[in-house]
Write a protein that binds this DNA or RNA. Sequence first.
DNA 1: GTGTAGGGCGCG
DNA 2: AAAGCGCGCCCTACAC
Length: 610
Amino acid sequence: MIPEPNMITPEAWAQAECGGTVAVDFETFYTATYSVAELGLWAYCHDPRFQAYLAAVTDGERTCVCAPSKFPWATIAGRTWVSHHRDFDRAVFERLQELGTIPAASATAATWVCSAALCAYLQMPRDLAGAVKAVFGETLDKGPRDRAKGRHPTEDCFLAVEISRYAGRDALASLALWNHLERHWPAHERRLFDLTSEMGRHGLAVDWEYVRAKRLELEDLAGSIADALPWKPATSVKQFEAACERIGVPAPPSTSNADPGFARWLKKHLDSDAATWVRHMQRVRSANRTAKVLESMEARRMPTGRMAYELKYFGASTGRWSGGGGLNLQNLNRKTAEGVDLRRAIIAPPGHVLAVADYSQIENRVLLYLAGDTEALALFRDNPNADAYEIHARRTMGYAESESLKAWCDRTGSNLRQLAKARVLGLGFGCGWRKFIDVARVMAGLELGEDESKGIVEDFRRSNPLVVDLWNRLQDACAVCDGRRYALPLPCMQHNPALKRFLFYRDVVVSKDDTTATVAGERMHVYGGLIAENWTQATARDVLASAWLRCAQAGFVPVLSVHDELVFELPEASADQDLAQIIAIMETPVLWAPHLPLKVEGKLMPFYAK
DNA sequence: GTGTAGGGCGCG
DNA sequence: AAAGCGCGCCCTACAC
């Protein structure tokens, strides 16, 4: 399917007539310490070490691979360009124009599209070789690129020839993928991809003094705590276990603060040196992590004072965006850690405030919607300010007081609301009693015994038959696809069947008491609760995506998006009205789920916070 | 030195 | 009957 490249010189390319879409692929110098992962796209391309040594361009018939300065860019101006990881190639191209390597006026694409984002949307492997394998069944050798790492092929003829063929072949593969699959990528998803890129390129305003001061503080702190430990490196579990052995204390099953086994161990050995050591280790790890995030932010500082970042379109198989480019802005600590509030580093630019608008309990609402629990949804709709846990308690736990659940619990000392919270957050997707003991502890601070947990799980399933039906329906629908692919359409397809928006479970294998399938290239166990969770997450993603598009349409372009929230920079003068408008847009029911009640909470703040 | 697996720490 | 899920990055340990 992918032909061997018909390689021609830049001179021959300039002579030939060609039309249609062209693929563009740059090869650049990188090492372990100088890479996109280390610096992000912007800083990588603006580093003194930046060097783009090859450009590969193909229209499918002819392929030209040469130094970027040698290619006749004007011949492809105004056409559609495609790259596999467009944002990388576009960043390189624009930097080369800035540097004068490519004449600035000579060329721009009419549109520049991305075959990697397209593959991700169709839930195929994002990497070029993986996608080619999945779509065409062909194997691309990744060897030449690996051998090129850390070397300048311009100074190595043999390598240069090898890399040229490789670059030409990659460009052809990108073009082939694009041409083959392009019609399955809807226009509004392309727009979301573009909005994502623009958002990251625009970046965020950052309080750089705070970032620097806190990074130094944390580095000092981590260093001094580490010095108090009698081994190096301070966070070595192996060393810790050896030290435990020396003082005759059994090592914990885990040294993770979040691990239930660790909590049990700590209780037993509270007064030992080992307990002190392990808490030191945890503090060092936490401080190091936070310091690294701050360092990563500093590396992405642009001369404008803003920080560029990347968010990966369709990074999760459900369609959610994920972090990427070496700095993940979707997992910044919510709370202060070791005296540092990471979110506080992201600020509103002068004359502006940050607006953070997030959907309230979106996944819970979507689950009830998918399960067809119209009664519960009506309660959400008719009581827009109600507490989701209270609605659950009234619906399924027999709570019938006229006063709010929270007030009632505060007055009577009941833990009913905590229990409702644990049930809502933990039991909607098939969690069993064993796991629920941990889930209830982490999510609601409840300490449950075995029988108690069993009782709650049973009671939840008995009193939420529609949710359990949903699991079973999905499990059955998947099992029917034994030996082939299970394609679960998302609700937006009901409104527009032309959209190819499915969750795919490939190569389903049903055995006596087990179902497995391939998701995102990996074999995994599949069960009703899992499919329900995936379906819910994907649908909630589509709700946010719809809101994002409609906000942008109205002139409100977010500067950040985190799963169920959009963040905007609003001019101080109009912030109140703007936020009200944003909330109204986000709460407007989506076309394909008019009876899904949506609730948004919005806040105006001088800096980012939850 | 480079690549990778697993544990750990963060988020929705 | 049983099964929370979805991510990314850093660090250590270890194979090559």
